[in-house]
Write a protein that binds this DNA or RNA. Sequence first.
DNA 1: AATGAATGAGCATTCATTCAT
DNA 2: AATGAATGAATGCTCATTCAT
Lengths: 205, 205, 205, 205
Amino acid sequence: MQVLGKTKKDVVTEFRTAEILEAARQVFAEQGFDAATVEDIAARAGVAKGTIYLYYPSKRAIFWAALKSGVLALHEETKQRLAERGTVEDKIRAFIALRVAHFEQNRDFVKIYLSEMGNALMHPAHLHEEFSKLYRESAVLLEPVLEEAVKSNQIRPIDPDAAAFGIFELTRGMVVRRLMGWSKASVEEDTEFVFDLVWKGIANR
Amino acid sequence: MQVLGKTKKDVVTEFRTAEILEAARQVFAEQGFDAATVEDIAARAGVAKGTIYLYYPSKRAIFWAALKSGVLALHEETKQRLAERGTVEDKIRAFIALRVAHFEQNRDFVKIYLSEMGNALMHPAHLHEEFSKLYRESAVLLEPVLEEAVKSNQIRPIDPDAAAFGIFELTRGMVVRRLMGWSKASVEEDTEFVFDLVWKGIANR
Amino acid sequence: MQVLGKTKKDVVTEFRTAEILEAARQVFAEQGFDAATVEDIAARAGVAKGTIYLYYPSKRAIFWAALKSGVLALHEETKQRLAERGTVEDKIRAFIALRVAHFEQNRDFVKIYLSEMGNALMHPAHLHEEFSKLYRESAVLLEPVLEEAVKSNQIRPIDPDAAAFGIFELTRGMVVRRLMGWSKASVEEDTEFVFDLVWKGIANR
Amino acid sequence: MQVLGKTKKDVVTEFRTAEILEAARQVFAEQGFDAATVEDIAARAGVAKGTIYLYYPSKRAIFWAALKSGVLALHEETKQRLAERGTVEDKIRAFIALRVAHFEQNRDFVKIYLSEMGNALMHPAHLHEEFSKLYRESAVLLEPVLEEAVKSNQIRPIDPDAAAFGIFELTRGMVVRRLMGWSKASVEEDTEFVFDLVWKGIANR
DNA sequence: AATGAATGAGCATTCATTCAT
DNA sequence: AATGAATGAATGCTCATTCAT
């Protein structure tokens, strides 16, 4: 019996999948990929170890799913936001704000993201391929915006790719700073700080 | 028998220590912390596994030593360079250039650094405490320079700590970009790009 | 409601049982006992895993049933053939021929039979008891024929049990030889070879 | 310090290797390949599980070593014996006697051999390749003897390969019969029985 | 009767660390 | 000081079996 295209089975599968993913997110965030055990994740999800393998083929697959879902969600949100009307300033500010806010609300995810970024980028035996693609994509979401802005003379003639990357990394750095408890400012203030640094630079003119 | 404060034993110890550290740097860079084995390091260093433990109490300790020595070397260099005479611009540019160059010349180290940054910052069961201190220190080397510059009105009245952090992260991002082969520019161009972004911002005025 | 002593239920049970058995024979033949999974058998039989357990209490039981049914079928055929009129020579030749032919036509079964023969005979934790009974019975089907032949002086005064066993094993060996592709002769030629070896020996007189 | 080409290390290695092999032989004989665990073997050998892996790369490798060493030893003995002077009769009788005696004295080994014979011959995913080579070689050791005997008219003009195989299998069958406790005769009697069956056949002339 | 999701015991293999020589 | 053989805890993954639906 199907209702709205979803069988009961689909619902259960969806539920378990999400349940496990959430548990995985927490465990990976707390312990990192290597220290986390499948047993841990199962326990956190309240299921038996074997059940995990009914929904994911391997530990790495769970990790990847947890990582990917978070990144993709942010990508989508970012794309939508950048597609809306607005000035270049608005869009850059939104790009930064979205990231700071998203990370603020998904600390588990950020921890996974940040910790994997190092491993994945550096050690090709891991997820690299796919992860670095995802990473790069995150960074270049802003590129078309900047390209357009350069053309229309709204910003200096800079390399849009490098600039997009810079803004992305600057934002990432701010998120780390906040996560570590090294910033006493509000989300808005930190967002504005990053934007200002990028937009005006620090020189006094 | 001591000569110049160093016994023969000290010399041997120093030698072995350095030898092992270099081997460790290579192995960790190639495989990452978890995939690397103590056996690998011993083999690379040309000593037996047991010997490693005469000089370092644990695998983690070796890793930490390898990481720390690299960071401290860069710290020292940076401090010296910033202590030299020069304008604020010079100093910021030097801070960036030093890092890009250092990383360019010590790729093994960077890989360790970047990959551990994620893990260490995120997972307290690891090195965090000490590493995050080191990390923070790296970032704030610039702080006094910026503080002074704000006071003397050479730069806008910004939070020196946040700005120092921003410059640090921007530089780090550029290094990653270069390591991944995503930048086609020269070391000098990329250095200048980061400096320009920071100094002038991107707004067209 | 019973019809001819069989309820509808009985018919279904019989059908399912046979269906599963045939699937099991194939899967066990292809993969061997340990490598085969109940899931494999269920899939091959076109039923769900749980269904298997409605008809057989365990994986071992399925295996045993598959093995037993094949052996019993051959037993019956052999008994009937040996009960028919004929000379001792005819009967021994028939015994051999029946086996070679049966194995030739039921390769799946032979593989199970041969591979289990080793395990079952050797490792009491398995089926031994029952299997070795079956095995022994196979071998001694010829015994009464030989016994009679000795009494009537048609063959030398040998131990009928040992001889029956010998003929059985010689035949088994030929089947293996054929299965492995080590014989280039026809079924008839190989049958005759075994018979000749047994009947005349190899000595030249 | 070397003595007679063997270092102390070599001696220890040899000792451990033999120690583990003997333990493995026992365990595999008792439980079969799949049911045996590396833990079992380690316990029987009186070493820790990890130690096993210092001497053998895998469970299969241990099994194979246990199997191979036994077969090769018998091969060598057989080759030597067949190379000695003697009539064809003597050689065939020796071939049979050697096997029955060897198996009688190495029951652990036979169990492994017999149980693997089934699996290995049937399921190529295992050791097949190598094992079936070994198996075939065992069988054809007699071939040159028979070939020569045919040429010199000492035995009937039979296919030497098939005959060698037959004698081998007949002997194997007798060993099984003895192992199962189904024979009440002595080793000599059983050996003679097999020889007689082969040599004279059973027909009364 | 049939299903298949859930279970969890079981196991090969790895590797950091120890310690007798 | 140096070695490297020995240890055994730790873990990802499989799969026979159960049972609620």
